[in-house]
Computed example of a mutant assay.
Amino acid sequence: MQEQPGLQGISPIQQVYVDAVKAPLDMIEVAYERLRDRLARQVEDERAKAETLSDAWTIIDNAYRLNTLLRQFPGLKQRDEIVRSAIDVFKVAEPFRHAEFST
């Protein structure tokens, strides 16, 4: 595994976590862009509905994955304001994963 610029001095396990965090972020970005474009066009055929649901689920699932990775990231200070903020943002995915909707 090649070290990323700006990441010198981190342990090999931390590098694995950096890579593990990057993948869901990339997937969220792709899914969000497709979802935004599809909703802007207001396409309503069955395939588009399935793609819309798939992209929405990709965002939810990867937000949950990021929340989990940030909590387990070795050496990451969980009380750091930026880390807490990121964990709180990604925590919003949890109710959607379990269909815990309140009215």
Rank of each mutant, 00 (worst) to 15 (best):
E3C: 07
E3D: 09
Q4F: 14
P5N: 02
P5C: 02
G9Y: 03
G9L: 08
P12F: 01
I13N: 12
Q14E: 03
Q15A: 13
Q15C: 07
V16I: 10
V16N: 11
V16P: 03
V16Y: 08
V18C: 06
V21S: 03
A23H: 13
A23R: 15
A23Y: 14
P24V: 05
L25F: 06
D26G: 09
D26T: 11
E29D: 05
E29W: 08
V30P: 06
V30D: 07
A31L: 06
A31V: 00
Y32L: 11
E33R: 14
R36S: 13
D37Y: 10
R38H: 06
A40H: 13
R41Q: 15
R41K: 15
R41A: 15
Q42S: 15
V43Q: 15
E44W: 07
A48G: 11
A48I: 13
K49F: 04
A50K: 15
A50F: 05
A50H: 10
T52Q: 09
T52L: 10
D55H: 05
W57C: 10
T58W: 05
T58G: 08
I60C: 11
I60V: 13
I60P: 07
I60S: 12
D61M: 15
N62M: 04
N62V: 05
A63M: 13
A63T: 03
Y64M: 08
R65H: 07
L66I: 07
L69N: 04
L70G: 02
L70V: 00
R71S: 01
Q72F: 09
P74R: 14
G75Q: 05
L76H: 05
L76K: 01
K77D: 01
K77M: 01
K77S: 02
Q78F: 01
R79W: 02
E81Y: 02
I82C: 08
A86K: 00
A86T: 00
A86H: 01
I87A: 00
V89P: 11
F90S: 01
V92K: 03
V92Q: 04
A93K: 09
A93R: 04
E94T: 12
F96M: 09
F96S: 06
R97W: 04
R97Y: 06
A99P: 01
E100G: 04
E100N: 09
F101L: 09
T103W: 04
